[in-house]
Write a protein that binds this DNA or RNA. Structure first.
Length: 368
RNA sequence: UGCCUCGUAGCCAAGCGGUAAGGCACCACACUUUGACUGUGGCAUGCGCUAGUUCGAAUCUAGCCGAGGCAG
């Protein structure tokens, strides 16, 4: 009998994944990860949970315990607080300081869930590890989850072929409503639990207040890039991302105002009017830390530049082992440095990297 | 000092005697394992203030306050 160590988050997806694995005849061991510690990490400003008798993380753990008891599988617990800080959170802060928009969850998967976790699982005797991600593995290829609305392959794009080699995604073949139905049928405590959102392990938070714990916020000017006129002031460049419109506090216009760029040396935030503004659109980008999930490297494929974005047709130029040029002459809005560019060929997730430069007409945009 | 124009929600801005359009911002919710984006809903018992005229005024009249402009 093969042993599977499954990451139990305390949510529905991993709960149902555990059920499915058990039904498939595996020897299933649950493993709960703890990666964030409010007091160790100095996470106080804007933390809504400080006065709660039990924080959401502990609640999740309790839920995981109950699910495992119900399924009659053991549940272990492991602490990766330091590793999460060193490999994910410092990266996150460093990127923000550079004015980029990082995706910490992708790095969490790369360094924690599919690295530290796997190593720990092996110590527990794992032949395979499993998670509740909506994605599939088939013939060694990473595929999108069947439920197009919940597909999470985007977050797995930084994983190497080796990292994906002994991984199972039990709910990847299911639609989310079916997952909930299975949870209900099995009378799991997590059946009606709301899907978690927000940064992995940190949760749904007021982004600004959360960051104030770690980064100084330096106020600066907001300039309309088309008129070059001062139109307001921002509260710190790291709080804004390209394509953002909420939180600017600038009214009095006929159209909506969008963030189109930032100058970290001058501490200026650039905005422009209208969601179809030319300053929002680019036609190519350079991607660094390019990771291929398999040996497939087609030059024509599709790409997502942000999670849940619709697929864009692109052409690839390989620059070197870790850099590619992604071209999309039809123009795409709000392609943002720091975000992941993830490539697909139909259902196959080919891999992904981090957007480092964004260009238009072969020129790097000065305002990004 | 005289004359003229203008003062409608945080910002723009309709209305010009019949019981406050719209946009932006903001807030809430939905969506969402990245800060988006998007969608839905909410948002002036009151129209600079005070008196009048009128069945009825943001809309007419007078005075006052305030912001511009012209004349000096």
């Amino acid at each position: 009998m093969k042993t599977v160590v499954i990451g139990m988050s305390g949510g529905v997806d991993s709960s149902v994944a555990a059920i499915l694995l058990k039904e498939q005849g595996y020897n299933v061991i649950g493993l709960f990860m703890r990666n964030w510690d409010t007091s160790v990490n100095g996470d106080y400003l804007g933390n809504p949970d400080l006065n709660e008798s039990i924080c959401p993380q502990e609640q999740d753990y309790n839920d995981a315990i109950k699910v495992c008891e119900k399924l009659d599988i053991p549940l272990k617990r492991v602490d990766f607080v330091k590793e999460y800080w060193d490999y994910v959170f410092t990266y996150f802060l460093d990127e923000l300081k550079r004015g980029r928009t990082p995706n910490p969850d992708i790095m969490c998967n790369k360094y924690i869930k599919f690295d530290m976790f796997i190593k720990h699982a092996v110590k527990l005797g794992a032949d395979y590890i499993a998670t509740g991600h909506y994605a599939r593995m088939k013939d060694g290829y990473l595929l999108r989850g069947v439920d197009d609305n919940k597909d999470q392959s985007y977050f797995l794009s930084q994983l190497s072929k080796e990292q994906l080699s002994n991984v199972l995604f039990p709910v990847g073949d299911l639609e989310k409503p079916v997952v909930r139905k299975i949870a209900l049928e099995n009378d799991l405590i997590t059946a009606r639990k709301k899907d978690s959102t927000g940064i992995c392990f940190i949760g749904e938070r007021n982004f600004k207040h959360f960051l104030e714990n770690y980064l100084p916020n330096t106020k600066g000017d907001i300039i309309n890039i088309e008129t070059n006129k001062l139109v307001g002031s921002h509260v710190g460049l790291m709080y804004y991302t390209i394509g953002q419109r909420k939180g600017l506090n600038l009214g009095g216009n006929l159209q909506r105002l969008f963030v189109v760029g930032k100058d970290t040396t001058k501490n200026i935030l650039y905005v422009a009017l209208g969601d179809d503004n030319e300053y929002l659109y680019t036609d190519s980008c350079v991607v660094e830390q390019m990771n291929w999930n398999s040996d497939l490297k087609p030059l024509k494929c599709t790409a997502k530049f942000r999670y849940r974005q619709k697929d864009n047709n692109v052409e690839i130029e390989i620059i070197d082992d870790t850099h590619i040029l992604v071209k999309y002459p039809q123009l795409v809005s709000s392609v943002t440095p720091g975000q992941a560019c993830v490539l697909y060929d139909g259902e196959i997730c080919l891999g992904g990297g981090i957007i480092s430069k964004v260009l238009k007409n072969n020129k790097e945009l000065w305002y990004l």
